[in-house]
Amino acid sequence: MTNIKDYNIPYNSNYIFDNSAYSEHGEHIIKQIKEIEEPPSALLITSDQVAVGLVVYCQIQQITIPDELAIVAFGNHYLTEMLNITTLTIQLEQMGNNLFLQAISKEASHQEATVELIERGTA
């Protein structure tokens, strides 16, 4: 498995934008990024809704996506297709079924989640 250390990319806590769950948080994240001396060139967003807010606010601020800021989100919400946002889809139903079966059997197991990259215009 490849990780960030394999690419010699240093960890930068300024690139972590937590407490963001809704589209309106996209504006807050962009304002924070504008204050960073060396801003990130790409963001991996854990919510499609936040990614939607980011894309809309980037358009308002005339930030070119993906040239100035690439965005990849999670979830494949229908709005990501409408706004041409690159996203990762996770089989949540399968994951939920596996967790349920583990809970009732009281036996933990480790399984890789199936993830699919849906490439669109933001990465």
Rank of each mutant, 00 (worst) to 15 (best):
M1Q: 11
T2L: 11
T2M: 09
N3C: 08
N3W: 05
N3H: 07
I4V: 12
D6N: 12
Y7R: 13
N8A: 14
Y11W: 07
S13N: 08
S13A: 15
S13I: 08
N14V: 00
Y15T: 00
I16F: 13
I16P: 12
F17V: 08
F17P: 07
N19Q: 11
A21I: 11
S23P: 14
E24D: 05
H25R: 13
E27Y: 08
K31D: 10
Q32N: 11
I33G: 00
K34Y: 06
K34C: 05
E35M: 04
E37I: 01
E37Q: 10
E38Y: 04
P39G: 01
P40F: 02
P40D: 12
P40A: 12
A42C: 15
A42G: 13
L43W: 01
L43V: 02
L44K: 01
S47W: 04
S47Y: 01
Q49Y: 07
Q49W: 02
V50I: 09
V50W: 01
V52I: 11
V52D: 05
V52N: 03
G53M: 03
G53H: 03
L54P: 02
L54Y: 00
V56G: 06
V56S: 10
V56D: 10
Q59A: 15
Q59V: 12
I60C: 06
Q61N: 08
I63C: 07
T64G: 00
T64S: 14
I65Q: 06
I65L: 10
P66G: 10
P66C: 00
P66I: 00
D67Y: 08
E68H: 10
E68I: 01
E68Q: 09
I71C: 07
V72T: 02
V72K: 00
A73Q: 04
F74H: 04
F74E: 04
G75Q: 04
H77S: 04
L79Q: 06
T80R: 06
E81D: 09
T87I: 00
L88W: 08
T89I: 12
I90E: 02
L92C: 08
L92S: 10
E93Y: 14
E93D: 14
M95R: 11
N98F: 04
L101N: 13
L101V: 11
Q102D: 10
S105V: 06
E107L: 05
S109Q: 15
S109K: 14
H110F: 14
Q111G: 08
A113N: 04
T114F: 03
T114R: 00
V115H: 02
E116Q: 06
E119K: 15
T122I: 05
A123W: 04
